Amino acid sequence: MRNPIHKRLEHFASWQHLTFMACLCERMYPNFKLFCQMTEQPEQAKTYQNILNLVWEYLTVKDAKINFDHQLQKLEDIIPDVNDYDFFGVVPALDAAESLGELLHSIIAGSTLEQAIKISQLSLQTVATLLETEQERELLENDLKSAVEIEQELDVQWQIYRILNECEKRNVDLILDLKNEIRSAGISNIGIEITQ
């Protein structure tokens, strides 16, 4: 599904891409956490959250020294294998883990645009997969475009984009505000709610 936001992201600086990606990963975290609760792996949810916290630290603390290669290894150890589980929850959890992986890769490699677009697509894909699972059929682009859940996901992505777009230069307060707003809402892209 084409998302007009992807064209606009081309004009962003790398800190804006990284903040955009971190926001989307933060929004997908409840999906990962719920999966960990259902499979009784609380440590894995903690690992995800810790890695994401380090990304926020990297974005907001000047000269923060973080070994992201090491964090990527930790993440790879907790990525669920869809073949090991027979319930839907593994899919959004995998999307969340893959998104965080893309974010870490972009920090390590220093290329951010492609990953920002990929995470934006992954987040939409999670919503689309849920709708297809609920309706037990493959949805066409028009079906997806008119789905309220897809509209909501696009709205959130645009909202994050607009806030970042209005910022001329890296603004630590703004980055922290975005993080805190998404975290305190505690609702994922597919409506999974967690209390902190």
Rank of each mutant, 00 (worst) to 15 (best):
residue 65 K to V: 09
residue 59 L to V: 09
residue 98 E to S: 15
residue 121 Q to R: 12
residue 82 V to K: 15
residue 15 W to S: 03
residue 14 S to L: 10
residue 147 A to D: 11
residue 153 E to G: 10
residue 1 M to T: 13
residue 150 I to Y: 03
residue 15 W to T: 03
residue 97 A to E: 00
residue 84 D to M: 13
residue 141 E to K: 15
residue 196 Q to R: 11
residue 127 V to P: 00
residue 12 F to Q: 03
residue 130 L to E: 10
residue 155 D to M: 06
residue 140 L to C: 11
residue 32 F to E: 00
residue 159 Q to T: 10
residue 13 A to K: 15
residue 152 Q to R: 07
residue 168 E to Q: 12
residue 147 A to L: 11
residue 70 H to L: 13
residue 101 G to R: 11
residue 183 R to I: 10
residue 19 T to D: 05
residue 119 I to V: 14
residue 50 N to P: 01
residue 119 I to S: 01
residue 27 R to Q: 08
residue 104 L to G: 00
residue 108 I to G: 06
residue 17 H to V: 07
residue 70 H to V: 09
residue 24 L to F: 07
residue 188 S to Q: 04
residue 116 A to G: 08
residue 90 V to E: 07
residue 41 Q to W: 00
residue 69 D to P: 04
residue 39 T to R: 14
residue 149 E to W: 01
residue 14 S to M: 07
residue 125 Q to E: 09
residue 169 K to W: 07
residue 180 N to R: 13
residue 14 S to Q: 06
residue 26 E to Q: 14
residue 169 K to Y: 08
residue 173 D to Y: 01
residue 65 K to C: 06
residue 134 E to M: 10
residue 81 D to R: 14
residue 25 C to L: 01
residue 193 E to Y: 11
residue 141 E to C: 13
residue 145 K to Y: 14
residue 35 F to L: 02
residue 72 L to D: 05
residue 132 E to H: 03
residue 196 Q to H: 15
residue 21 M to K: 00
residue 7 K to N: 05
residue 18 L to Y: 06
residue 173 D to R: 10
residue 145 K to P: 04
residue 78 I to Y: 03
residue 152 Q to V: 12
residue 45 A to T: 04
residue 183 R to A: 12
residue 183 R to E: 11
residue 170 R to W: 07
residue 66 I to F: 06
residue 73 Q to G: 09
residue 162 R to S: 10
residue 69 D to F: 11
residue 182 I to C: 09
residue 9 L to C: 00
residue 172 V to A: 05
residue 40 E to K: 11
residue 37 Q to K: 11
residue 21 M to E: 02
residue 99 S to F: 05
residue 131 L to F: 05
residue 26 E to C: 09
residue 5 I to N: 02
residue 109 A to V: 05
residue 95 D to T: 13
residue 194 I to A: 06
residue 43 E to D: 13
residue 54 L to K: 14
residue 135 Q to S: 15
residue 177 D to G: 12
residue 141 E to T: 15
residue 27 R to E: 06
residue 116 A to S: 14
residue 154 L to N: 08
residue 30 P to K: 00
residue 193 E to G: 08
residue 87 F to N: 09
residue 161 Y to E: 08
residue 105 H to A: 05
residue 30 P to D: 08
residue 61 V to A: 02
residue 161 Y to C: 04
residue 129 T to E: 05
residue 131 L to T: 02
residue 165 N to C: 06
residue 173 D to N: 13
residue 25 C to Q: 00
residue 161 Y to D: 04
residue 159 Q to F: 09
residue 61 V to T: 06
residue 22 A to G: 02
residue 160 I to Y: 12
residue 28 M to Q: 10
residue 196 Q to F: 12
residue 74 K to P: 03
residue 40 E to T: 06
residue 14 S to V: 04
residue 147 A to V: 13
residue 93 A to I: 04
residue 24 L to A: 11
residue 19 T to M: 01
residue 109 A to Y: 05
residue 49 Q to A: 15
residue 30 P to E: 05
residue 121 Q to C: 08
residue 171 N to K: 04
residue 170 R to A: 12
residue 151 E to D: 10
residue 68 F to I: 05
residue 100 L to V: 03
residue 137 R to Q: 12
residue 106 S to R: 04
residue 45 A to I: 03
residue 66 I to V: 09
residue 114 E to Y: 07
residue 125 Q to G: 06
residue 102 E to H: 11
residue 93 A to E: 00
residue 165 N to F: 10
residue 64 A to S: 14
residue 145 K to V: 13
residue 144 L to K: 04
residue 58 Y to A: 03
residue 66 I to H: 01
residue 166 E to M: 13
residue 182 I to W: 00
residue 97 A to K: 01
residue 173 D to I: 04
residue 143 D to L: 03
residue 160 I to T: 12
residue 93 A to R: 02
residue 6 H to D: 09
